[in-house]
Amino acid sequence: MVLVLCIGDLHIPHRAVDLPQKFKQLLVPGKIHYILSPGNLCSQEVLEYFKSVCSNTHITKGDFDDDSSFADNEVLELGDFRIGVCHGHQVVPCGDTDALALLQRRLNVDILVSGHTHEFMAMQHEDRILINPGSATGAFSSLNPSAHPSFVLMDINGSKASVYLYNLIEEEVRVEKMEFTKAASKLI
């Protein structure tokens, strides 16, 4: 059982003051095994905060990150899944599921964690899973002006992934759960 935090597009200090207090309370150090972030942290302090929650971080470079140590994309294997992380500003049309699926095939990943749209999403697309944790600060974006803060927790157990979507709506944290199973690889 592996607990994975997917969190991104914080845009601190460019567009947001801080992670919501209610999220900070949830993200206690020592519980989470991996942090996967599609990027746009935008400051060293956010990175340090991530590291304080969990030292095992995989962060890719967003269009507003100037940390050159972040890669364009990262791939790792957890349980039976291959998981890819990529910010998504490289994908045209932005946020389009077919375009994301193309990237997913290129990286050969079962789960793709992307960001950029500030709109959270977790869905099965063809035989793979797309996850966008949204913006953890609900940062303003002209792509999604009414974004509210959100992140995703994934619990990976063998070939099963339970995905919890955390949303902060009107100062209240709402959680939604979705279950995914890795599709048996289909040979042609």
Partner: peptide, 13 residues
């Protein structure tokens, strides 16, 4: 940088 980021965050207030 940390101090300037404080100032930067303050803009949103």
């Amino acid at each position: 940088e940390e101090e300037q980021n404080l100032l930067a965050r303050l803009v949103h207030q």
